[in-house]
Design a binder for these strands. Sequence first.
DNA 1: GGTCAATACTAAGCAAGCCTACTAATCCTG
DNA 2: CAGGATTAGTAGGCTTGCTTAGTATTGACC
Lengths: 133, 133
Amino acid sequence: MRRAFDERAREIGVTRPQWQVLSVLLRHEGIKQGGLAEILEVEPITAGRMIDRMQDAGLVERRADPADRRAWRLFLTPRGREMMERLQPLAIETSEAALKGVSEKDQEDLLRTLDTMLENLTGRPATTASWSE
Amino acid sequence: MRRAFDERAREIGVTRPQWQVLSVLLRHEGIKQGGLAEILEVEPITAGRMIDRMQDAGLVERRADPADRRAWRLFLTPRGREMMERLQPLAIETSEAALKGVSEKDQEDLLRTLDTMLENLTGRPATTASWSE
DNA sequence: GGTCAATACTAAGCAAGCCTACTAATCCTG
DNA sequence: CAGGATTAGTAGGCTTGCTTAGTATTGACC
């Protein structure tokens, strides 16, 4: 799915992980980098570097946290918001293409089994939100 | 699973993709780089770079193809073979840990559904061999 | 209030994935 | 057999993931 999405999104100039960042920011504007990293299940440095590039590309904005001078608060730029609108159809298209001919029940079973496996491996309870993540 | 395997394999000094290479070579010694790339579902350049590193580490060996001067034939070194023996238990351990509490039927359903999705996205018929891949 | 641990992030450096562009060799077709 | 298309692999350069090591700030405890 990463490959399929990237293929379609390349001309727009955004990768799947970057889309995930935009997607998280849309719902959690003002989040700190650490929080973003946790949601994406990556290390803070990975999120930080991604934000570096996306800031250069004008997709996100870092603002100083008024209460903690170590931290950054993350915000979408207008360009980032516009990008999301262009990517949304692609994301839906991709997951629909992948799930063609897969019954509702099979989809639920799949997510349930994968959650069990993730929990087995990480020790944390898994919280799969949707197909888009 | 990548993360869980890497965590255990780190001290041995091999990554999960490298283990996959060793695993393919064990069953297909003398394969060309392109063939390896195809089995791993990775671009030839990715496989080539991996072989570079593994050759430096003394795990695999490149031998000239007698029939085609463009191509390399790949072989395990004794060190690579020994590495496989140390990694086999880790691989089994990891997939058993992941699948704890997942019924046979759920495992089959999972693989079947994922195969369908892979086929949907790639157009190629999917051929999942086992949990180890 | 001073010290020390914890927290938020960055730096450097590596592996693995990709794309585009290249060389060298082989193969096919006239 | 010559020439062009295809195939096998490499080079450079990008993103994303990691680990280890560092800085700066905050917070907690005596």
